[in-house]
Every structure is written in C-alpha cells, then in structure tokens.
Nucleic acid binder design. Structure first.
Lengths: 233, 233
DNA sequence: AGAAGTCAAGAGCAGTGCTCTCATAAGTTG
DNA sequence: CAACTTATGAGAGCACTGCTCTTGACTTCT
C-alpha cells in the first residue's frame, strides 16, 4: 500500500533479507552470520545486499529489533491471557520468556547473551523494543505493590542506592517507587539467569527429564522472594 | 624441571600462546580470536602454531580451562578468607565471582556467556575446573544445612524433580540432599544472572554510581531467599 | 653417523567483509 | 515521447580469516 512500486519492492527485499538472516542466525549464530551467505540464498551477488543494508552490523541490528519485537509480543499476549493476579501475571511472563528463549536460542543469545565483539546495538533503535519485557515486569510488580499483593516485609532500599535505582527507572521511563525498581532488578536478573542457564547449557551435559519443571521451581521461588501473593491470600 | 629441553621449550611456547591468546581474547572477544594474529605476535608464521595447537577450538579450550582455573582459585581464596559462617562464605563467593567477571569480561563471557557457535568445550577437559565454583557453593549450602544455618521454611522439593536434581548432583559428584541441590541451582542461576546483567551491560547505557552496591543488594537478597542466617541468629 | 622425530616456513584453498566501477533497468520530469 | 536522474545488480578486487600440505632444516636418540 505505501508509495511507489519501487519502494514496495525495496521493502519486500529488506523483509526477505531479514527473514533469511533470521534463519541463518538460528543455524550458525550471530558471530558467524555472513552477509555473503544471505546474498547467496537471496540469489544475488554479495555487493547487491549492501544496497539494502549498510554492513553486517546493521543486519544484526535489524535482527535484534526483530527478535525484541517477537519476544515482546509473545510476552504481552501471555501476560494478557493470564488473570489479573500479580502472581499469575509474573508466572506467565516468566514462562513466556523461557518458552521463547528455548525455542529461539540463537536469537535469545543475540539479545541477552555475551555481546558480539565489535558490535554494540545502537540504543536509539533498540531500547524502545528492548525494554518492553522488563518494563512490563516492573508494571506487574508496581501493580502488586499498589493493590497490596506485595508483602512489605523485605528490607527497605539503602539510601545510597537511590540514584542508581532512579537511573534505571529513568531508562524505563517509569515513575514507580524505588522499592519496585529494586524488586524488578532482582526478579529480572534472577529470571534472566535461570533462562540463560538452561539455554546456554550451563547445567552441563546432563539432559533433564523435565527442564520446564526445573525452571518453574526457580520461577516460583522468585515470586516468593518478591513477596508476591494472591489478592486474597 | 621436566624432561628434555625440547619438552621444556614446547611447554614454554604453549604458555606464550596461551597468554597471548588471553590478551587477544580480552581485546577482540572469543568469536574474533584469530590464530594468525596470535602467530604474528608470537613472531612466527601462522602454520607454525598448529604444531602446538590443533586448531582454533583447542586454543579456546586452553583459554576456557585457564579462565576456570583462575576464577576457581580466586573464589576459593575469598571463601577461605571469609569466616566460618555460611552467610559470610556465600557473600564472599558472590563478590569474588563478580569481581573477577567485572575485571575479565571477555573471559567471563567465554565461560558463562552465549556459547561460541560451532564450538563446544570438550567436557573431559573442562568439567573438572568448570564445576569448582558451583560445587563450592553447594558445599557452603550443605554446610549451612547441616549446621542449622539454613531456615527450613522453604517448600519441600516436588517429587517429580528428584531425578533431575539427582542428575545435577551426579554431575557435581556430590552426595547432598535434594533440598541443597535445589537451593544451589536457584542461588547459582540468580547470582549468575546478576553478574551477567552487569558484565553484559543489560542495564542499558546508564552508568551507575555504585554498581558494586547494586550487586550486593541482589546478593543479599539471594542469601535471604536461600534462608541463610548467622549461626546464632 | 644414521634414523627418527620435531619444527618453522611458504604456498595455496575457500571463505569472509567491504569498496569500487560499470551497465542496465526503473521511475521522473520537461 | 524523449531526456534525465536514480536505484539496482554484477563483477572485480583488497585484505583478512582458518586450515592443509609440502619442503627443508634442526634436534634428539639409538
């Protein structure tokens, strides 16, 4: 529907490059992602793709945004489908993240793994999509805080940390209490650690009968540690 | 002291290759680590290093073991220097891991980041060194369990998880209760998540006034979640 | 001294990212 | 409709990578 046929053709080709890149990423990983291979599969000589993508890094950026968007959409949908209780929403978020990560290990690694050397995702193109999940997590915790679904037995946040916590909430464009930010940081890093452990195979060579249950164990405990409980509980 | 002068010269050259590789790893990362660059710096033609190292992967393995060893030594020393209380030992372990990771981000990424595509560390050469820290963590928790420094208020482990937890303790060659293994998994993944977040810059572009304090916040809460308390507390 | 083992050098293959020039096809304007 | 401008793809080429193979020299052991 947009503009000239040439512009539409360009959009189409760019989409093809992205989807081929996505498949290659899944197969060989970010570090071995090759523009030439993408060009080959596109049926075009290598220099031609440089008409669409400035360099390999920009292709990576395209894939980063693409992955963040898909993850964000799936997590949004899962949390939406969960009930209104904060515990359920947190659990849905955790499981949706894990499910996506297990299904798309290379893309998860691109987003949350060790940074690709020499490549830094340009903030202006990735932060918006990249902070969706953690922002949602903060909102869930904030909701629990407001509705009284969060135990207030946890120790208060030390004053020296306030500036740093404020920096994080600025980053997320959120106006929530320090306590909520602290809980979010804690939950997000623990969740992220559990997912990374499974996806990156830090459990060693052992294969597990029920890795999802193992993850749920950790996720449950994170919820407990957060102090989340059911509305009437 | 060992054997023939030729063997000693070989050992020396291998050490040189490792230390040059370690420096290159820090500068360009694992994926961009180049055998030719190492050879250049060694003052030798590229094919010559293949006399010492079968291929690039083996150089990576050398560096993996090297890194695991250094990390393990530092953590051991820190835990040893801490008092006998389980809380102190856990805190010392957490801070030692973070300190090393912050100082050696590339090597941390090599060990605990996204796997290098096409490279899998050979288990027979890396598991021994690679499980030192997590084994020590399990021993700390087990000690707390035995000495009564671990609150037993946490929910018991579901029966369906027992086989998988058993698999983990087998991997670590430890004979400790399922409860201890579950707590170890939880603590280790949370700790690992917190360190990775800081090292891999998942906090975004914001620079923090006191990242160590931010980490301590999370580490403290992990200790609380574990149920660790002081001997007489 | 001769045999066996070890080592470095160099050439070469196939692949990479990226830049350049050139011809052609596609749209845009007079 | 013709002329101009732009977008696009092809091809050659540079410097780099991992890795293999052959060749010649050197060291060590018998």
């Amino acid at each position: 529907m947009p503009g000239t046929p040439r512009a539409r053709a360009r959009e189409q080709t760019l989409g093809d490059i992205t989807s081929i890149g996505r498949r290659h990423l899944a197969e060989v990983g970010a570090a071995a992602l090759s523009l030439r291979a993408v060009a080959r599969e596109l049926g075009v000589v290598s220099s031609a793709v440089y008409r669409y993508v400035a360099n390999r890094d920009e292709l990576l950026t395209l894939l980063v945004v693409d992955a963040y968007t898909e993850l964000g959409d799936e997590v949004d949908a899962a949390v939406e489908a969960a009930g209104p209780a904060a515990v359920d929403r947190f659990t849905a978020l955790a499981q949706a993240v894990r499910t996506w990560a297990v299904r798309e290990p290379s893309r998860y690694a691109l987003l949350y793994g060790s940074p690709v050397p020499g490549y830094a995702a340009p903030a202006e193109r990735t932060t918006a999509e990249g902070t969706r999940v953690v922002t949602l997590l903060a909102l869930i915790i904030d909701g629990a805080w407001r509705s009284g679904e969060l135990d207030d037995t946890a120790a208060p946040v030390a004053a020296t940390l306030e500036p740093d916590l404020r920096a994080i909430s600025d980053q997320l464009s959120l106006a929530v209490p320090d306590r909520v930010i602290a809980a979010t940081v804690q939950a997000w890093s623990a969740l992220f650690g559990a997912v990374s452990f499974e996806v990156f195979g830090q459990y060693g060579r052992s294969t597990f009968a029920d890795p999802a249950a193992l993850f749920d164990l950790v996720a449950d405990r994170i919820a407990v540690q957060l102090g989340l409980r059911r509305p009437g509980g």
